[in-house]
Amino acid sequence: MFIQPWDAALDEAEWQTWIAEGHDFGQLSVNGLPGRAPVVVPTHFTCDGHDLLVHLARPNPVWKAIEHDPNVVLTVIGDYAFVPGPWRATAGAPPHDGVPTSYYTAVQFTCRAVIVDDPEAKAELLRRQLAHFQPGGDHAVVAVDRPPYSRLLPGIRGLRLEVAGVLAKFKYDDHKPVEHRTAVAGHLTARGQGLDVPAARQQRRRLDRIGPWKP
C-alpha cells in the first residue's frame, strides 16, 4: 500500500484506536496456488494480543492456499468517501478545475497464518470471538461436548494470524490548507451519504492533531 507522508498514521495508537472502535471486518488475502489467482476472503476478525483470530468454513478453498504459503495479508478499510473535483479546487480557480479524489482509512496486517484444528483450541478461539462480538454472553456455551457447538465445530477451521507488520493510511488531504480541509469536511457532513459523516469526522480529528501540514 502506497502511503504519502501526510497520509501516514501519526502513531501506533491512532490505528489501534481506529480498529478498536469497531473496525473488525476485513479481507483476508492469500497467495494463490501456482498458476492460480490469489484467494480473497471477507471475514470478521478478533484481536488477541498481537495476533488476529479468524474462523472459516472447512469447505472454503482458502485452506489449500494457506497450507502452500502461510504468508497472508488482512486489510481493513473504512470511513471512505468520494470527494468531487469542485470541492478540491484551488482558491480562486474555476471549480471544474478541481481534481476529485477518495478519502479513506486503511490498515493492512501482514501475518503468518497458523491453522487451528484441535477441537478444544477451536472452541477457545470461538469463545474469544464471542466475548468480543457478543460481550453480553447471550449465546450457548461453546464446548466440544455440548450442543449446538459440538456438532458445528467439525465444520470450521480456525486461523491465528501472527502479525509481522502493520501499514496504516489515513487519506484525508492533510497536506492541504486548513481552510480547505475544514470546507471539505463541511461538504461531506452536509451531503451525508454513505460514510460521508465518519470520513468528515476523521478529517476533522486529523486536522485538530496536525494543524497546518509541515513536511
Rank of each mutant, 00 (worst) to 15 (best):
A8Q: 10
A9R: 12
L10V: 12
L10R: 14
D11A: 12
A13Q: 14
E14W: 06
W15D: 02
Q16H: 12
Q16C: 09
W18I: 04
A20Y: 05
E21G: 13
E21K: 09
G22P: 01
G22V: 00
D24V: 13
G26H: 08
Q27V: 13
L28T: 08
S29T: 15
S29Q: 10
N31H: 07
G32W: 06
P34Q: 04
P38A: 13
V40D: 02
V40K: 01
P42F: 05
T43Q: 05
T43E: 03
H44R: 03
T46H: 08
T46Q: 12
D48P: 00
G49R: 06
H50S: 09
D51Q: 04
D51H: 09
H55Q: 13
A57F: 07
N60V: 01
W63C: 08
D69C: 11
P70F: 03
N71S: 12
V72E: 06
V73M: 15
L74F: 09
L74Y: 03
T75N: 10
T75F: 00
V76A: 06
V76N: 04
I77W: 08
D79E: 14
G85I: 02
G85L: 07
P86I: 11
P86Q: 11
W87L: 04
R88H: 07
A91I: 13
G92Q: 04
P94S: 10
P95K: 12
D97R: 03
G98T: 02
G98A: 06
V99C: 01
P100D: 08
T101S: 09
S102Y: 15
S102Q: 15
S102P: 00
Y104T: 02
T105N: 10
Q108G: 10
R112H: 14
R112G: 07
R112C: 07
V114N: 06
V116I: 15
D117E: 15
D118N: 05
P119L: 06
A121V: 01
A123M: 00
A123S: 01
R128V: 03
Q129I: 09
A131V: 08
